[in-house]
Design a protein around this nucleic acid. Structure first.
Length: 699
RNA sequence: GGGCACUUAGCUCAGCGGUAGAGCGCUUCGUUUACAUCGAAGAUGUCAGGGGUUCAAAUCCCUUAGUGCCCACCA
């Protein structure tokens, strides 16, 4: 053995051998009970970033349970990441001086498909290099035809059960990206704006959006407002920049009597709150902004102006006409922006498909409250429950082509919607007309991801692995993805999709900043694997950070982990040199207990047994940092510094055997964390072709 | 407006009721004999501030301040 551990030499072809032997397939333990983790499918549009290396937690769990004799399945996949991918692709087009409008739907889809396929290979290579024991024979992509079929079936079921509706509701619309979003895809940003106090008929009222007056259909005061009580129900006449107009005065609870003057203009077509009020009070909805973000003909001479320009010009005109009482220029409030491009979200009236969430959320809440699903760390239960208890209907329509097209057709004669499980309908179910047109929209990606656990297992004929054991992912997508999987999973299968939710923290750059492509601080895990070895990278991610907390990438920690692999290597080197018996596969814990006569040997056997127990507990309770720290401490400072030094002076056949056996036990305990080096050393010490990854967990 | 974290050695972070810990860095010494990617010894801290509970608090409770993140239809 070389004096220095060379991870590049060792890590080279071990993975391929494992894969060829079929060790990653659960069938390796045919009699074991199923243990399942579905890999959170990485986006297919880009290589993995360093945060993805946190998948190591899943590999630790899978390898540990496999060694315990369970039929451990870790199912890989990739997500088409609809909007995200199209966004990236459009940027690419932009650089080439083209836009999505230069291509028809099918062309664009095909181009993105090819682009994504290229990326997927790279991603899979990264996962292999990190040693992840994924069952590649079962890998799925969210746009595989069998997955799409399942997604269609779910959509149809929702429709048939009355949980789906096509809503004339306001949606979050980004005029730049040209699509609507769910509530989760909207960011909130604090901003300073002018608050205009308008002379509005008999009232003075405050607004930041004077340009929307053309869509006003009411004026509102609080229901308990004594001062304005007498106006309620009356119609008032208002002098505006385009002449006089009339609106109703209504009373509603959402109006804060202490804000501004306690009077608000109501623009149902362009404000969420106003829209809701409009529904309650049966107000007209007058759209004045078009999907390109410009005012329409309802704005008269202001037609064609972008919202921002219009605001300025309308306000100036109002001022000239003496319609503005005063302007508060230091008004700070929160606005909604597109999470992707930062453009101010324009609430728009757009017919979209919505899922009624309340009845879906209820069982998902119960599952956690009753302990059917456990969340680790527990503090995230609150985030989960808050989201579900205040759930709002989910807009699943997206105006993009990259995704699963919605299987809904509208009859052009009677406008009835026909929903199928994918196949084009022959005729309208109401008027029998053959003149049908399919909805041009695609599903929100998260609608298909929400079905991922059962969809992948059904598509790979592995239903016996459902419900899965653990859903392990970053806490940042607890609501976007995990909560929705629980809801949809229970709804479709009647069972929870997983029994445990295990959430890891985010990995930031060395300075503690979030890694992002735009900041240019993204680190490719392969770079670090190259430099430190996969085992060290894996270990460094687990060691020294409380599980669930964020961490910053730490080079000293990586270095320490690499030194640890070198230490292991040299311990092995020493043991091999001193070994008296050959072909020794090591004794089990029980035999060692009987065999150890020397006090120090006895003590070490006892301590090793304790360590194994401790690790078992730590892994079972998802406290991976404890496990890693215990291993590091014991292996180095107990076993190497003290025990080996002691045995050194009294080496004989008996002590050599015990030393060798104990070390092999430690290798097995280390294996889920550091699969490559433990495999290599195990083969050398045992002089066999057996793989440590399918040996049993020492206890 | 609400919520969740964090504040411990120079740096990065564990510990979460019983005499302050790790890695890196620092000091001294050792080592041809598994490993200088090593070993031995050591220095370094009002555990953010204040109050309380307790025989005992970095650890539990209250409070103040700073930092980060998340939620939220404040016109």
């Amino acid at each position: 053995m070389d004096k220095v551990y060379n991870h590049k030499e060792v890590e080279g072809d071990i993975y391929q051998k494992w894969e060829e032997q079929g060790y990653f397939k659960p069938e390796i333990n045919p009699k074991g009970k199923p243990y399942t983790i579905i890999l959170p499918p990485p986006n297919a549009n880009a290589p993995l970033h360093f945060g993805h290396a946190m998948y190591v937690i899943e590999d630790i769990l899978i390898r540990y349970h496999r060694m315990k004799g369970e039929a451990a399945l870790w199912l890989p996949g990739a997500d088409h990441a609809g909007f995200e991918t199209q966004f990236v692709f459009e940027k690419k087009l932009q650089k080439e001086g083209k836009s999505r409008f230069d291509f028809d739907r099918d062309e664009l889809y095909k181009m993105i498909w090819d682009y994504v396929q290229k990326n997927r290979e790279g991603t899979e290579n990264q996962l292999r290099k990190l040693g992840f024991s994924l069952d590649w024979t079962r890998k799925k992509f969210t746009l595989d035809s069998d997955i799409i079929k399942i997604v269609y079936k779910t959509f149809k079921k929702l429709f048939d059960d009355g949980l789906l509706y096509r809503g004339d509701r306001l949606v979050n619309y980004c005029t730049k990206c040209g699509t609507s979003f769910s509530d989760l895809e909207v960011n909130h940003k604090e901003q300073k704006d002018s608050l205009y106090y308008l002379k509005y008929g008999p009232f003075i009222l405050a607004t930041v959006r004077p340009e929307t007056v053309f869509g006003d259909t009411a004026v509102a005061v609080n229901t308990k407002d004594e001062k304005h009580k007498n106006w309620v129900g009356k119609e008032i006449e208002v002098q505006g920049v385009l002449g006089k107009f009339k609106v109703k005065v209504i009373a509603d609870d959402v109006i804060d009597p202490n804000f501004g003057t306690g009077v608000a203009k109501v623009t149902p077509a362009h404000d969420m709150k106003d829209f809701e009020m409009g529904k309650r009070h049966n107000l007209n909805v007058v759209r004045i902004i078009d999907f390109d973000g410009k005012l329409n003909e309802k704005a008269g001479k202001y037609k064609g102006l972008y919202v921002k320009q219009a605001r300025k010009i309308v306000a100036e005109d109002m001022q000239k006409m003496g319609l503005i009482e005063k302007i508060d220029e230091n008004y700070t409030h929160t606005i909604e922006v597109c999470y992707k491009c930062g453009t101010t979200i324009e609430p728009m009236l757009l017919p979209q498909w919505f899922i009624r969430m309340e009845s879906l959320a209820k069982p998902a809440i119960d599952a956690v409250k009753k302990g059917e699903i456990k969340i680790y760390p527990q503090r995230f239960e609150k985030t989960y429950l808050d989201f579900l208890e205040n759930i709002r209907d989910w807009n699943i329509s997206r105006q993009i082509v990259w995704g699963i097209r919605i299987p809904a057709w509208q009859c052009q004669d009677c406008s009835k919607w026909v929903v199928t499980a994918g196949e084009a309908p022959n005729n309208c179910s109401k008027c029998k007309s053959k003149n049908l047109e399919q909805d041009g929209d695609t599903f929100d990606t998260w609608f298909s991801s929400a079905q991922w656990p059962f969809a992948t297992l059904q598509a790979t004929k592995s239903e016996n692995f459902y419900p899965t054991s653990v859903m392990e992912t970053g806490y940042d997508i607890l609501r976007w993805w995990v909560a929705r999987m629980v809801m949809v999973g229970i709804y479709v299968t009647g069972k929870v999709p997983f029994k445990n939710i295990v959430l890891h923290g985010l990995v930031n750059d060395p300075l503690g900043k979030k890694m992002s492509k735009s900041k240019g601080n993204v680190i490719d895990p392969l770079e670090l694997v190259e430099q430190y070895g996969a085992d060290a990278v894996r270990f460094a991610l687990v060691y020294g950070t409380a599980f669930g907390n964020d961490q910053s990438l730490s080079y000293p920690k990586l270095e320490a982990a690499r030194k640890f692999t070198n230490k292991l290597w040299n311990m092995a080197r020493f043991i091999e040199m001193k070994k008296i018996r050959i072909n020794d596969e090591g004794l089990m814990m029980k035999d060692l207990e009987n065999m150890a006569k020397n006090e120090n040997d006895k003590e070490m056997v006892k301590k090793t047994k304790q360590l194994s127990k401790e690790l078992t507990n730590n892994i079972d309770s998802y406290q991976f940092n404890y496990a890693a720290e215990a291993l590091y401490e014991f292996v180095w400072h107990e076993f190497a510094d003290k025990y080996i030094e002691d045995v050194k002076n009294r080496i004989n056949q008996n002590s050599s055997l015990i030393l060798n056996s104990l070390f092999i036990i430690l290798l097995k305990l280390l294996h889920p964390f550091m699969p490559f080096i433990t495999e290599e050393i195990y083969k050398r010490l045992t002089n066999s072709n057996r793989s440590i990854m399918i040996e049993s967990w020492p206890q």
